[in-house]
Design a protein around this nucleic acid. Sequence first.
DNA 1: GCCAACGTTGGC
DNA 2: GCCAACGTTGGC
Length: 152
Amino acid sequence: MPYWLMKSEPEVYSLQDLQRDRFTIWDGVRNYQARNFLREMQVGDLAFFYHSNIQPPGIAGLMQIAQPNLIDPTQFEASSKYYDAKSTPEKPRWQTVKVEYVERFPSLISLDALRQMFSADELWVVRPGNRLSVMPVAEAPAQKLLAIGRGG
DNA sequence: GCCAACGTTGGC
DNA sequence: GCCAACGTTGGC
């Protein structure tokens, strides 16, 4: 079963927000590489929720993919900042997934800690200059992260 | 708030 | 299809 890491700015949408909502549609991804990963996701895949653009940044907890391959509705909403005039309902450009809250880790696994534990090859999020907001996590680092996260 | 990294756009 | 200009991301 594949693992993923998905970034969100907690000012915009945090893991606590997902805990309150239980489910959310992960809309607004407008990067083709990230979208291609979203297209690969399957029901039950686990995804680490990463808080970006906050001090300190890091992995806050876990969610799972509840519904794969959804059409991102915001691409058709003219008032949305994610509106895409070149996308049509017949040929939508942007797919996403519905995610479900799983758990919040007792403490955040900070980017600093991630850098100490993993190389840039093992975990893409520690690559300098990495801006991708959706990325896969390999089995071994995922297991390690689950153990660390749950260990508190 | 700054700015490096880097993806996207558009003129040619 | 190249590449300069531009916009966005995200750590600091």
